[in-house]
């Protein structure tokens, strides 16, 4: 059984009479695998990530999504998080007044509680954060500041990866994690992600450019277009796209 099984997923913006954004998307992801989803702007990549995380602005009109055989679409947002779904946001929001440390701890304990695990002790938590933060070049000062408040684009992305490292999810969805990053920041973030690769953990890396995939090397590459996966292949597919661009798909569209 696949860890994540998306079958014939159709979705549109909630309350919108307009067109479907996802039009029959299917994808199976097994533990240990890294899948890249590439595609031109507007192909529905970010919508997919939001629907997996449970954002309430979308309505699923057909199809199913299961995580370890359970119906993911029936779960509340925080329930999904506790089951191990983690979304690294393209644009992480700011939560003023709530220190990153407080936030991390609240999130970790909320998840543990839902899973019936004990809360983490303060010294253990501090040690955990200190170790992981150091690897990602996140300063104590950043941890004391409000969540994402006053962070640069790169700092926000690193903070997302730090959260991922601490929450240890089962399924990581990285939404355009490379956007707004210079090459050095990209390296730091990629190393952070690669360190989290494990046989029990799956990842979906959503990106427009091949660049990120030089650092996070995927097992599978999918091309998404007009709400559907139109082509799948190995990592070499990304290189092909890099060479030829999305023109071929856009022509299809025309």
């Amino acid at each position: 059984m696949a860890m994540l099984d998306i079958d014939n997923l159709h979705a549109k913006i909630d309350g919108d009479e307009g067109q479907e954004i996802l039009k029959g998307l299917s994808l199976k992801v097994n533990p240990g695998e890294v899948h890249a989803i590439m595609g031109p702007n507007g192909s529905g990549k970010s919508t997919l990530s939001y629907i997996l995380a449970g954002k309430e602005d979308y309505e699923v009109t057909d199809g199913s999504v299961t995580l370890d055989g359970e119906d993911l679409l029936e779960m509340e947002i925080d329930e999904r998080a506790a089951k191990g779904v983690f979304l690294a946001f393209q644009y992480p929001v700011e939560v003023p007044g709530v220190a990153t440390m407080t936030f991390l701890r609240s999130a970790l304990n909320a998840q543990r509680k839902k899973r019936g695990e004990a809360e983490i002790s303060t010294p253990d938590f501090l040690r955990l954060v200190r170790d992981k933060a150091a690897n990602l070049g996140i300063s104590q000062d950043m941890l004391r500041r409000g969540v994402n408040v006053g962070f640069s684009g790169g700092e926000k992305k690193r903070a997302e990866i730090l959260q991922m490292a601490i929450l240890e999810p089962k399924l990581c969805i990285l939404d355009e994690t490379d956007s707004g990053l210079d090459i050095d920041a990209l390296k730091v973030v990629s190393e952070g992600v690669n360190a989290l690769r494990s046989p029990d953990r799956a990842m979906i890396v959503i990106t427009h450019y091949q660049r990120l995939l030089n650092h996070i090397v995927p097992d599978f590459v999918h091309v998404m277009h007009k709400g559907r996966i139109v082509r799948s292949g190995g990592k070499e597919l990304a290189l092909e796209l890099e060479a030829n661009g999305y023109a071929e798909y856009q022509q299809d569209a025309a």
Binding site: A53, E76, I77, D78, P92, V93, V95, A110
Partner: peptide
């Protein structure tokens, strides 16, 4: 903000309290 907090595992009440405390 609520979505972000809940994506990290906080239930609506916890998320609201956290944001209000901020």
């Amino acid at each position: 903000q609520l979505f972000y907090c809940r994506q990290r595992g906080l239930d609506p009440e916890e998320a609201t309290a956290l944001i209000v405390n901020g």
